[in-house]
Amino acid sequence: MELLAQAASGADQIAFGEAISAGFAYGLAAIGPGIGIGYLVGQSVQAMARQPEAAGMVRTTMFLGIAFTEALALIGFVVFILLKFA
């Protein structure tokens, strides 16, 4: 590891750090919305199973909730793209 660190030039280390940071930014930004969508849909399915007559309203709210939560992942992805490639 020490030899590897010595062999790598400064520019390589910076590129390595950028790649790692961008990967973490994207990964962490996807984990949160994943947990959120899982919780949201789980609760919605429970609501629809308990009260089927309200399914239309629950599905409407669920779809919008999923889309709003997904926006967080999209923001993380855009940050990743801009950090890595722009």
Partner: peptide, 29 residues
């Protein structure tokens, strides 16, 4: 695509709706 996936899965089962919502999130991302 998200709407079509959720509508299709809801017509089959609520369990598939759950799977389609989470799997769909991953696939769409």
């Amino acid at each position: 695509f998200a709407a079509a996936l959720l509508a299709w899965s809801a017509r089959i089962s609520l369990a598939l709706l759950m799977g389609a919502a989470l799997g769909g999130f991953l696939v769409r991302l």
